[in-house]
Design a binder for these strands. Structure first.
Lengths: 144, 144
DNA sequence: GTGATTGCAAATCTTTTGCACTAAA
DNA sequence: TTTAGTGCAAAAGATTTGCAATCAC
């Protein structure tokens, strides 16, 4: 019989650890815990404040400064993406594939729009000396 | 001969005053001065800080708090529009017609893209109970 | 005059920083 | 060990607010 600790179903430590490893980030206690919150489950849109509260709620002891550090490291290593929809607060998205967003103005909630569902026919050429780093489409929604 | 004060070429006090009147804003000294800076000339993209410095530079005595108040009042009355491209700073646009933007990531500069030059084919229906208040397309540019 | 507007300074909010402490390798 | 990472509190930057003074009507 195999010892529980070595009973390896292909994911000995879970995908969170692997993601951090792949991103070249040392898997510390807090990064691992945050990665689990963020990546195990559906795609998410979080602000630093919300993620901090959620972490506290689940018993993860982590400071707000570390939340910011972590979100920025995850963004810098391509694990997450920053979305700009509110000039007062930063949002981060666990979906790093090409896509767009619905933004509910009243609640501040974000919802993905798959890239295929938006066709942007950009006629103007990009200015000389520049290249397009990203095209963001935000459909702002108000209550009817 | 007509007195200089009444020599009216169709714009007795200039369009700035008329704009404020039309927007229902009392034409105070600082609102008038800011309106002239903003609306007499080509369309502009300003941040509160930049507008404040520019005003000071031209000898307009106005506090930063009033700059913020004014930009928000102008936005609330439809004289300007807020553009969200940077989660740390607010930008306001004097062009309130339907259009989009190039955003130079390195300099923070904005450039209009006429609405006709971008075709957004939005296939997903808007969620129930909501209506589209605006569709923003931001083409982020990096240096080549 | 009277109520709207302004300026100033203090307050608030989000995000960053400095630095001693802790933990991963 | 050695070095990266963390927490905390303080700092920084953007924006808002409270309130007395000022201005438009």
């Amino acid at each position: 019989m195999i010892h529980a600790r070595t009973q390896n179903r292909g994911r000995p430590y879970g995908p969170a650890l692997e993601r951090l490893r792949a991103a070249g980030l040392r898997p510390t206690r807090q990064r691992l815990a945050l990665a689990k919150l963020l990546f195990e489950g559906a795609d998410r849109h979080v602000s630093a404040e919300v993620l901090h509260e959620e972490a506290q709620g689940v018993g993860i002891r982590v400071s707000l400064a570390t939340i910011y550090n972590t979100l920025h490291q995850f963004t810098a290593t391509g694990l997450m993406r920053e979305i700009v929809v509110d000039s007062q607060r930063s949002y981060f998205d666990t979906n790093v594939t090409n896509h767009h967003h619905f933004f509910y103005e009243s609640s501040g909630r974000l919802q993905d729009i798959p890239a295929e569902e938006v066709r942007v026919a950009r006629l103007p050429g990009t200015p000389a000396g520049t290249r397009v780093s990203r095209v963001d489409v935000v459909v702002r929604l108000a209550e009817k």
